[in-house]
Structures are given as structure tokens and as C-alpha cells.
């Protein structure tokens, strides 16, 4: 029993190493630069709010990733979901629970449409989702007088703030973990992603699995839309501009996939998101937030981390001969 406890302790330590390390580094840098407002409740709250949003979106992106697909339409689905659900809730005078419900419902419906188009058109998933992205973006111009969404200062935007933001976050993590670890379709999805052809031969119905997986992604994207719409003013989108959402939230996915090996992938992503937000907030405090410098640091960090984790794998292989057998 103590051994088990020890492993859990070790795993927790390894997982938390990234955000804690990031915090210490940023703290040191800000302290040296004479900025003393880095360690403050406001910053911590900002880290938690932004980190929660990042986690939810990253989970949605990662769920498709994990199932072997690169889904380009995630950002567009989220934006469109937020616009529809937010405006409907507002116009109907609904409360935050209605907003939550509608977000999930619309997210699921849009994802369902995407999955239907993909599985019946049999167009390669990137191309198919690019096309879907264009359509969803175009729809943002056609509905609600192309107003987009602006509800951040209403009560229905409650889920955008600490502590309520943890509710969609926890739901998203639970849905993610539950689907991928405990459900039949989750297991099938794992088999399909690791060996698509074999799994189909064995008799796993791929279309059904794709659709189920998209439905679950729809729930998480809906939650993402809920938080995103509660925190941001959304304007209509065009020409794949939503891909920038995808690209900026994909970095925590990369990092989280690596960190997740110490424990659970979803936790890795949450921890990576928090760590990245600590970095962003630190940069904000230093006065380089939002500008070109931040982008450059962000890019450097991503490449550095990816390179490191790549080498890490090679180092590990040196000590484990087993992989040799598999390559032949």
C-alpha cells in the first residue's frame, strides 16, 4: 500500500514540476526586473481563469488528436456555438444554466454535423474539416445580424469567472476521462487510432465511433464555447481566421501530451495550460504581454520544449532495448 502511495506521490510531483518550475522562473525574472506585482491574488485569478479556458479547448483538440484525427474545425465550431447559444440565451432572457445547456446542445449538434459530413463524404479529415470550418465561419455572418456575441458583462457570463469557471472545467475533464477510459466507444476509438485497418477488420464500426467521438468533442467544445463566450467579445469570422484559435491552443496540447505521460493525459494538459498561463501572466507583468516579444518567446518555448521532449524519448530508448525488436 505504501508503495502505491509512493508512486502516486512521485507522479504528482513529476506532474506539478512544470507549473511550479514555471512559476519559480517567472517569479525570479519578475523579481530581478523589479516587478513586484507578479505574486498577487489578481494574477493568480487570471492564471486560473485563462488556464481553465485553455484546458477545456486543449482537451477538445486533444480528444480528436488522440483518436488519430487533426480536426481543423474545432475553433469554428466553438465560435459558432458560443454565438448561437449566447444570443439565444440572451434574447430569451435565460439564465447561466440555460447558456450552459444550450452551449453543450449546440456544440454537440454542430460536431454531429461535422462528423456526418466526414464519415459519409470520406474526404480526408483535414480537408473535410477545413471545408466545414469555412461553412461555420460563414454562418457567423448570417445569424443575429452578424453581431457576433457580446455578453461578457451579463450574469449569464458567470461561467467565465472564478470560481464558477471550475464547473465547466471539471465537467470537461470528467467527460474526457470517462469517455476515453471507461466507455466502449472510447476503447474502440483507442483501437481505431492505433491500428485503423486492423480494427476495422476486426469489426469495429468506424463511422459509429467517429460520430460518437465527435459528439463527446461537441460536449467539450460546447463547454469551451461557454467559457470563451463568457470571457470574450466574439466577432464574426472568415477565411479560416478561427485556425488561429487552434494554433494558439495547440501548444498546451503538445506540452500536455508529454507531461501526461507522468500521470494522466487530461491532467497533463490541465497542468500544461496552467504553466503556459503562468508564463503569459509573467510576461504581462514584465510589460511584454500581447506584443511581438511575447509571440517570439512563446514560439521559442514551444520549439524548445518539443525538442527537449523529442530528445527525452531518445535518451529513454538508449536505456530500453525493447524498442529495437519492434522496429524490425
Amino acid at each position: 500500500m505504501t508503495k502505491k502511495l509512493l508512486t502516486i506521490f512521485k507522479k504528482t510531483l513529476l506532474t506539478l514540476a512544470f507549473p511550479v518550475g514555471m512559476f519559480l522562473v517567472m517569479w525570479l525574472i519578475t523579481a530581478v526586473s523589479g516587478v513586484n506585482n507578479f505574486v498577487s491574488p489578481i494574477i493568480m485569478r487570471q492564471v486560473l481563469t485563462n488556464g481553465s479556458l485553455t484546458t477545456i479547448i486543449a482537451l477538445a483538440i486533444y480528444l480528436q488528436f488522440k483518436n488519430g484525427r487533426f480536426d481543423f474545425s474545432g475553433g469554428a465550431t466553438m465560435i459558432l456555438t458560443a454565438i448561437i447559444a449566447g444570443n439565444v440565451t440572451y434574447n430569451a432572457g435565460g439564465n447561466f444554466l440555460m447558456f450552459l445547456g444550450l452551449c453543450v446542445a449546440v456544440g454537440v449538434i454542430l460536431s454531429f454535423i461535422t462528423s456526418i459530413i466526414y464519415s459519409f463524404s470520406r474526404v480526408p479529415v483535414i480537408i473535410c474539416t477545413i471545408a466545414v470550418t469555412l461553412v461555420y465561419e460563414a454562418i457567423t455572418y448570417l445569424i443575429f445580424d452578424a453581431k457576433g456575441l457580446n455578453i461578457i458583462s451579463y450574469d449569464i457570463a458567470m461561467f467565465g469567472k472564478v470560481p464558477f469557471i471550475f464547473i465547466p472545467l471539471v465537467i470537461a475533464v470528467i467527460v474526457f476521462l470517462f469517455y476515453s477510459n471507461f466507455t466502449v466507444e472510447g476503447k474502440r476509438g483507442k483501437l481505431l487510432s492505433m491500428g485503423q485497418r486492423s480494427a476495422v477488420n476486426i469489426g469495429i464500426a468506424e463511422n459509429k465511433n467517429v460520430i460518437t467521438c465527435y459528439l463527446v468533442t461537441g460536449i467539450i467544445l460546447g463547454l469551451g464555447a461557454l467559457v470563451y463566450g463568457s470571457q470574450n467579445i466574439i466577432s464574426p469570422q472568415s477565411n479560416l481566421s478561427t485556425s488561429s484559435i487552434l494554433f494558439s491552443y495547440i501548444v498546451p496540447v503538445f506540452i500536455g501530451m508529454f507531461l501526461g505521460r507522468a500521470s494522466v493525459d487530461a491532467v497533463g494538459i490541465a497542468v500544461a495550460s496552467i504553466g503556459m498561463e503562468i508564463m503569459n501572466s509573467g510576461l504581462d507583468c514584465l510589460g511584454v504581454g500581447g506584443g511581438g516579444v511575447q509571440q517570439i518567446i512563446f514560439g521559442m518555448f514551444m520549439l524548445g520544449f518539443y525538442a527537449f521532449s523529442g530528445q527525452f524519448e531518445k535518451l529513454k530508448n538508449l536505456f530500453m532495448r525493447k524498442t529495437l525488436k519492434n522496429t524490425i
Partner: peptide, 17 residues
């Protein structure tokens, strides 16, 4: 979307990724 559906369809047994 229409052009993509016409030009990129894949008739394999498995869904193209």
C-alpha cells in the same frame, strides 16, 4: 465544400485521415 466532396473522396474501407 462541394468541390472538395467531388475531388477528394476516398473509397477505401477505412476513413481517410
Amino acid at each position: 465544400l462541394a468541390i472538395v466532396l467531388l475531388t477528394c473522396r476516398d473509397k477505401g474501407k477505412i476513413l481517410p485521415r
